[in-house]
Simulated assay, not measured.
Amino acid sequence: MKTPSHRKSGLHPRNRHQAPYDFDALCQRTPELRPLVFVNEHGTQTLDFADPAAVKALNKALLALHYGIQHWDLPAGYLCPPIPGRVDYLHRVADLLAESAGRVPTGKGIRVLDIGVGANCIYPLLGAREYGWRFVGSDIDPVSVKAANLLAKSNGLGGQVECRHQGNAKHVFHGIISPQERFALTLCNPPFHGSLDEASKGSERKLRNLGKAVKGGPVLNFGGQKAELWCEGGEAAFLATMIAQSKEFASQCLWFSSLVSKKENLPAAKKALAQVGARQVRVIDMAQGNKVSRILAWCFLDEATCKQWWQPAPRDDA
């Protein structure tokens, strides 16, 4: 059978997933993946990426082979994230921190807040393994918080990853960040859709793009609970709330950031950032093949003051 030689365009240079998936190595590490792999009409190994079970098994294999995450599972119906794109976010914001730190900062002295950590706990697990960072994850869903904490502990990261329940859905940072806490970075993958119907139609489009017929009622082919996939007003409303509330924590967080899937949401977000007095605003493009997204990052400090944040210089804490 053929092994494709092309590399995945658009990924960060440090991303471990530049090359096509090595299914032989992945199946060796995670045998449950093997029966889901087949040879397509071009003679190359692949999966049915419209099959949630196949996508989940691939994730487990990728995490085990590349990141030493030996125990990873999800409650039924929860969001199963694409690993290459998620770790790309981390690499790009690591470069953002490096601009003021003088180098890519690593170790447990770097504290990161993941807003909407989800049951998959994917950003804390990847960030802890790739950069040694320490994470706090927050979520309004108690099942997600319990599952994420269990994943951290199961992989020996209980002392490095702590997930907290956000009891008020109207708050993003309040109730999670205590008065004495400081974070070098906040992350977020906000709810994309504005309703369950919109989320279902989005999944139907994905399935059609994968050549699958759509039958019956609502379709959520990669899982996802309400808080993971949709909120009133969708991505634009969530971004507006996050930006407005970030001002209160301007002295406790160096860089705030969020994925922005819809490019048309950027102008309003930039306007909102100007209104709250953000001193630095960055739009960082990301791409994986034909899929294009971007990270919106903002900071309430000027560049000179950002450098002072790192005094003494960041170090690799044991």
Rank of each mutant, 00 (worst) to 15 (best):
W72R: 05
C80K: 04
H66Q: 11
H66N: 14
Y78R: 15
D51K: 02
R86P: 10
P81K: 11
F49P: 04
P81G: 11
K60T: 14
A50I: 02
L79A: 11
P82T: 04
L63Q: 03
D51H: 09
G77D: 08
G85V: 11
H66Y: 15
D73W: 14
V87L: 12
L58D: 00
W72A: 04
H71R: 14
W72P: 05
A57W: 00
A53R: 12
P75W: 03
C80F: 03
P75I: 06
W72V: 04
I69D: 02
G77S: 10
F49S: 08
P82C: 09
G77L: 11
L63M: 14
A53D: 12
H71Y: 07
I69E: 03
A57G: 02
P75Q: 05
V55Y: 02
V55T: 10
N59L: 01
A50Y: 03
A61M: 09
V55Q: 08
D51G: 06
A76T: 11
A64Q: 15
V87W: 06
A64R: 12
D48T: 06
P75V: 02
C80E: 10
I83Q: 00
P81T: 14
L63T: 11
P75L: 05
P52H: 09
A76E: 15
D51M: 07
A57K: 00
K60F: 00
G85T: 06
P75D: 02
W72E: 05
G85W: 11
I83S: 00
G68P: 07
Y67V: 06
L62Q: 07
D73F: 04
K56A: 10
D51Q: 06
A64F: 02
L74M: 08
